[in-house]
Write a protein that binds this DNA or RNA. Structure first.
Lengths: 152, 152
DNA sequence: AACAACTAAATTGTGCACAATTTATTTAAG
DNA sequence: CTTAAATAAATTGTGCACAATTTAGTTGTT
């Protein structure tokens, strides 16, 4: 009886991988960026580079700080990434005249042109997910809530 | 009127960051592993190392292949990580006698002992998430479904 | 004017992720 | 029995993430 109880306790430990939300989140996020890879290969972009380009397709000029706030990353990640986008001639990097500390990122004509090649990607990914729109929206809301609560 | 339509189209483009499930997933996953960091610092583990230890707390012996299937990662990621865990004396790495290709990972006494220090972590994370259990379960199910569909 | 406090990026170093390749071993087929 | 195919790990190289530090420039105070 005591043995049985102990066994039951062990089975329902808090440290069981299969019960961890965070591990599901982590694995799904990896799988997602893996699924993007073949689609983004056509554009010669990584997933994060694609995210940055998406911001710049909406706002053609932005500094590193603003970009970092928008996508929840810091200059340690963004500086080398932006240099790679600059090397591909998708963006320019110039210091602000008013404040020399600020690095201004501006999308180039090539960068703008790339948007057209990207138009089909969101739909391709929705197909790959094989999930209904409402399900995806619910998943997004759960992620957004978690992100907001963890960032407080 | 045509102008208005064009503006509306632009606003509802598929390439708007704020509408992307994947970006929410990606940001939430990063935020999650950031939130684990101070808790795991006490155990001198990274999030992925913690995941691997969690598997080994359940199954004290496992080879690299089995581990990789369980946590959806390959030897390219696992080999260096397991060497680091070996350096910390939390696991041993020995070749199988029956099949010399197979590397067997076995948890050490130190590794087992570390479990006790980890017991409080899942609950700490649940608190940080500030989300109800049902919400977290729904989020987990969404992630699991997405992972399964993307892995097919 | 001088200097402390602050801010924006960049840099440094560690540890993932993963594609692609290589090495070593085992199994299968002729 | 031998050689081709298959398998398990390891290796190599690129690009994130992020903590911690550094560099350079700005603002506020006296």
């Amino acid at each position: 009886m005591a043995k049985q109880l102990k066994a039951k306790e062990s089975e329902s430990s808090n440290l069981m991988l299969d019960k961890q939300v965070c591990f599901s989140l982590y694995s799904a996020s990896n799988a997602m960026s893996r699924a993007y890879r073949p689609l983004l290969k056509e554009l010669d972009l990584t997933y994060l580079q694609y995210i940055v380009m998406m911001v710049l397709w909406e706002h053609s000029t932005m500094n590193v700080k603003e970009l970092g706030i928008k996508i929840h990353l810091d200059s340690g990640t963004l500086t080398p990434l932006l240099k790679r986008l600059e090397a591909k001639e998708l963006v320019t990097r110039t210091r602000s005249q008013e404040d020399e500390r600020v690095m201004i990122i501006h999308i180039t004509a090539d960068g703008v042109a790339l948007k057209q090649k990207a138009e089909a990607i969101p739909n391709s990914m929705m197909c790959k997910s094989k999930m209904a729109l409402e399900e995806l929206i619910a998943l997004k809301q759960g992620c957004d809530r978690l992100l907001a609560n963890l960032s407080e």
